[in-house]
Amino acid sequence: MSSLHVVSVKTYVAIFLALMVLTAITVAVAFVDLGPLNNIVMLGIAIAKATLVVLIFMHVRYSTRLIPLIAAGSFFWLLILFGITISDYLTRGWLGAGTPWGH
């Protein structure tokens, strides 16, 4: 791998503009009531924006394989934390005992 990959200014500016467009879309969509779809669009756009920053601004696209592994791995660890914890709360009502917050 090359240790010094110089990304062109044009690419950086293009990414910046893409981030601006995505921000505009996410704000616009927020004012429309789409039900649960609002969350999906909102998070989808946030993830897309973060991915652009990670890949280009943070040079992960041009780095050794280990770096994307670490980035993806730590997000995966976050999912373990979220997934297992929330699975506790989601299944509490299954016995029909009810919970203080009515789920």
Binding site: A71, G73, S74, L78, T85, W101
Partner: peptide
């Protein structure tokens, strides 16, 4: 240096992760 910084960021992700976990739970509740 790059690897070290990325590992530091991995720990940052989990650090903020605790806050996002709390957000997820409480927003789901109410």
């Amino acid at each position: 240096a790059t690897l070290g910084m990325w590992l530091f960021l991995a720990q940052e992700i989990l650090f903020f992760g605790g806050l996002f976990m709390a957000y997820l739970l409480y927003r789901w509740r109410d």
